[in-house]
Simulated scan of single mutants.
Amino acid sequence: MATTLINHIEITPGTWVGKPRIAGHRITVQDIMIWHERMGLSPDQIVHHYG
């Protein structure tokens, strides 16, 4: 059973090693942080490419 946090982030034991991810997607919160902080993508760019 998935635990949903803040209506947009969920944690499901056994899925992606229990890492927090975007609800309904396989994109982890860590992925978004890397794309934004390390690769310099804006939120709009992230949504365009991965949404």
Rank of each mutant, 00 (worst) to 15 (best):
I27M: 06
P20T: 01
T4G: 10
T15R: 13
T3E: 13
I22V: 05
I6R: 05
Q45H: 10
W16S: 10
I11E: 03
I46N: 02
R26Y: 14
R38C: 12
V17T: 11
T12Q: 08
E10W: 06
M39T: 15
I22F: 00
W16T: 10
V29K: 00
R21F: 04
I34T: 12
P13F: 04
T3S: 10
H36M: 10
R21T: 04
M33F: 14
I34R: 06
T28Q: 01
A2I: 14
G14V: 05
P20A: 04
D44Q: 10
R38W: 11
W16I: 14
P20L: 02
I46R: 01
G51L: 03
I34F: 07
N7D: 14
V47G: 07
H25E: 15
N7Q: 10
I6W: 02
T15C: 15
W35C: 01
Q30R: 09
H8K: 14
G14F: 06
W35F: 05
L41I: 07
P20M: 03
T3P: 04
E10F: 06
P20I: 00
T15P: 07
H48I: 11
I34Q: 08
I22M: 02
T12S: 08
I34W: 06
T3L: 12
M39P: 07
N7W: 05
P43H: 04
H36R: 09
H49E: 12
G51R: 03
S42K: 08
L41T: 03
M33N: 13
I6N: 05
T4D: 10
E10D: 15
G18C: 03
H48C: 14
G18F: 01
D31Y: 02
T3Y: 11
A23W: 03
K19W: 07
D31M: 02
Q45L: 06
L5Q: 06
L5H: 06
I34Y: 08
E37G: 06
E10P: 06
A23G: 06
I11A: 05
I22N: 00
A2R: 13
H36E: 07
G24P: 01
T3F: 10
I22H: 00
I34V: 11
A23C: 12
V17F: 13
M39W: 15
D31G: 00
M39Q: 15
R26M: 11
G18L: 04
L41A: 06
S42T: 12
R38Q: 14
H48T: 13
M33A: 13
I9F: 04
M1T: 11
V47L: 10
I27F: 06
V47E: 07
G24E: 02
E10A: 10
T28K: 00
G40K: 05
L5A: 09
H36W: 09
A23V: 08
I32V: 08
I34A: 05
H49F: 15
G18I: 01
Q45S: 09
V29H: 00
E37T: 10
W16Y: 13
H36G: 03
P43G: 01
L41K: 07
P43F: 03
L41S: 05
K19I: 04
P43A: 03
I11K: 00
T15F: 14
K19N: 08
M39H: 15
V17Q: 10
V17W: 09
E37Q: 11
W16K: 09
G14H: 06
N7Y: 08
G40R: 04
R26F: 11
N7K: 11
R38Y: 13
W35K: 01
Q30F: 14
D31Q: 04
H25V: 14
I9G: 01
R38V: 08
D31R: 02
H8E: 09
